[in-house]
Computed example of a mutant assay.
Amino acid sequence: MFVITGPYYDPQVAPHYAGQVRVPDALYKLVFDPGTGKSWVYWTANANVRKPERLSYAELVQRTGIHYFPSLP
């Protein structure tokens, strides 16, 4: 299993800062199982939310513009 966790900064939203540190607009966790070839993503706005969204790998790539595993569709 590979797990990648990261921040997301929305380019269309004005940056928010806590002191001198930029606060991400969302956080995500990408899970990839190379044994099965399956992947899934948990995405949550950096706000008081009950549950994270479940995204596909393709949706994460579309939102972030990053291809974490180039061999995945």
Rank of each mutant, 00 (worst) to 15 (best):
P52N: 12
Y57P: 06
K29H: 07
W40D: 12
G35T: 01
A58P: 02
E53K: 14
K38M: 11
Y28S: 05
D33P: 02
N46T: 03
K51Q: 11
Y57E: 10
A47F: 00
P52Q: 13
V49G: 04
A47R: 12
G37V: 03
K51V: 01
Y42G: 06
A47V: 01
N48G: 09
V41G: 00
G37N: 00
V31K: 00
K38T: 13
G37Q: 07
N46F: 06
L30M: 08
V31N: 06
T36D: 00
K38S: 07
K51I: 00
P52T: 09
F32Q: 01
Y42W: 11
A26E: 08
A45M: 06
Y57F: 15
W40R: 14
L55F: 10
F32D: 01
R50A: 10
P52H: 14
R50M: 09
E53S: 11
W40I: 02
A45Y: 10
F32H: 14
R50T: 07
K38W: 07
W40C: 04
T44D: 08
E53Q: 15
R54P: 02
W43I: 11
F32W: 14
L27E: 09
F32S: 00
R54Y: 07
G37H: 02
S39A: 13
Y28E: 05
Y28W: 12
V31T: 10
N48Y: 10
S56N: 11
Y42A: 13
Y42T: 12
V49D: 07
N46L: 05
K38V: 06
W43G: 03
Y42Q: 15
W43A: 09
K51S: 11
T44R: 06
L27Q: 05
G35A: 05
W40G: 14
A58I: 09
P34Q: 02
G37K: 03
K29Q: 14
L30I: 08
N48V: 12
E53W: 10
K38R: 13
R50C: 05
L55K: 13
A58S: 15
S39F: 00
V41E: 02
R50F: 04
A58K: 15
R50Q: 12
P34M: 02
W43K: 10
W40Q: 14
S56V: 12
G35S: 08
G37I: 01
A26P: 08
D33T: 04
P52S: 13
R54D: 08
Y28I: 03
L30G: 00
V49K: 12
K51M: 02
W40T: 12
P52I: 10
P34F: 04
K38C: 03
Y28H: 05
K38G: 01
A58C: 10
V31W: 00
Y28D: 06
W43M: 09
Y28L: 04
Y28C: 06
R50V: 08
S56R: 12
R54W: 02
N46E: 07
W40N: 12
P34H: 06
R50D: 13
Y57K: 14
A45S: 09
S56T: 15
V49F: 05
P34V: 01
A26W: 01
E53V: 04
K38E: 15
S39C: 05
G37C: 00
G35H: 06
V41F: 03
V31D: 11
V31C: 03
Y28G: 08
L55T: 09
